[in-house]
Amino acid sequence: MILAAKIGWGLLGTVLVVGGIVSSEGFVHVSVQQHRPGGTHIWLVAPAMAAPIALRLVPRRPLEQALEKAREWLPAAQAAASELQECPDGPLVEVTDPTEHVKVGKRDGSLVVDVNDPREKVYVAVPLGAIGDSLRVLAERGATQ
């Protein structure tokens, strides 16, 4: 009985520690909702720390192709991600036309993109820390090629 209790406490502790580590950088939220009747609604929440880890696992070939045009913008993107973390929350870009509404802003430490067009409503929130880490991984992998 005592052994079972010890194992239970051990498992609970492990779950809490792993949960704490996984959620330490926040979560990526993605929502895509089609406006048509019966349209799908995809709602995805993933730990933000998975993004830089996943980028380390991307095969070299497709990464090279993706980095070909983006490489020269990586330092600017890294600087932006880093500085945005220090900036107060607020809207950064908003484009409105009769059929479409696009908003990009910073909220609660995340870069938030909100798109509402006649077909679907898309919401993406990515913690800026995870964006910075991902860009750093891309820069490191790009530099070693």
Binding site: P75, A76, Q78, A79, A80, S82, E83, L84, E86, C87, P88, G90, P91, L92, V93, E94, V95, T96, D97
Partner: peptide, 18 residues
């Protein structure tokens, strides 16, 4: 169409040199 852009100057000061 309406476009609104709000750039913190501190952000521009960090990004432009990069």
């Amino acid at each position: 169409q309406k476009v609104r852009v709000n750039i913190p100057l501190s952000l521009a000061a960090q990004v432009i040199p990069a």
